[in-house]
């Protein structure tokens, strides 16, 4: 009995050779325990070494292998062939990003948005600390789920708002800014508030919630954005009603 196969329709774009993108079909051996990343690696090793895509850990930690699978953003290391077999699987680069080559996207815009919200611990006093900054379990619980983000960008590919307004800061960057604003050890909320409160910040979100639906780490970016909206609104009223006061 011949080995069963499954067909992958893979997006191809080689800027040095192609004028426009095309789809290329590959028949790949079907194994029940294979994920789509295994199939892509098989193509690269046995059929076409020119196929380009990002991947690293193969276990849903690094966040590099996100692609559009039949139109849905997924980590290819967590999407099993058996969930699609025997139908053909269409694989494309993540939506809402420019394509560098084949399945590789250009991440520059996201990296610029991410750094703009200063997703790191900010302290007023930067001299070396004498003591540890202790946290209670409830202080940890306040931000922990938002710290699970792996920057896989599935939420950016799923976001309809980013499709209509590419300047929108986006779910992961806002969730990470909010993660640090919620951290009892952080003192940088005021530095992040201008960008979060801008038109391109939290107000770009209409709470559609696709980001939360597709997140492979069960972070709730849509929830983070709503919480950030409340914080930014309180800050706006404070500034308007008590302009002499501190934020």
């Amino acid at each position: 009995m011949p080995e069963p196969t499954i067909t992958l329709d893979v997006f191809r774009y080689r800027p040095d050779e192609d004028e426009r993108s095309t789809f290329q079909s590959y028949d790949v051996p079907y194994h029940e325990h294979w994920v789509i990343l295994d199939a892509l690696n098989w193509i690269k090793d046995h059929v076409d070494g020119t196929l380009s895509y990002r991947w690293s850990c193969r276990m849903g930690v690094c966040g590099s292998c996100g692609m559009m699978i039949n139109g849905d953003p997924k980590l290819t290391c967590a999407a099993f062939l058996k969930d699609y077999f025997p139908a053909t699987i269409r694989i494309e680069p993540l939506a809402n990003f420019p394509v560098e080559r084949d399945l590789v996207i250009v991440m520059d815009d996201f990296m610029s948005k991410l750094t703009s919200v200063k997703p790191w611990m900010i302290r007023d006093d930067t001299s070396p600390m004498e003591e540890e900054l202790l946290q209670s379990p409830s202080q940890l619980a306040a931000y922990k789920q938002f710290s699970m983000c792996i920057n896989c960008l599935l939420c950016y590919a799923a976001c309809p708002e980013l499709d209509s307004d590419p300047d929108f800061l986006g779910p992961a960057a806002i969730a990470l800014a909010h993660r640090y604003n919620l951290d009892s050890r952080d003192q940088g909320t005021a530095e992040r508030q201008d960008i979060l409160g801008a038109e391109e910040g939290v107000w770009g979100c209409a709470f559609i919630g696709e980001c939360t639906e597709v997140c492979p780490k069960n972070v709730d970016p849509a929830g983070a954005i709503q919480q950030a909206k409340v914080a930014v609104t309180k800050d706006w009223y404070k500034r308007m009603l008590l302009p002499w006061g501190k934020r």
Binding site: I195, W203, W236
Partner: peptide, 18 residues
């Protein structure tokens, strides 16, 4: 981010939210 647009959306959103 190259540019930021200031907005009073917080006011309208607070009415929307309430």
């Amino acid at each position: 981010m190259s540019h930021l647009t200031k907005t009073n959306e917080a006011f309208w959103w607070s009415l929307f939210s309430a």
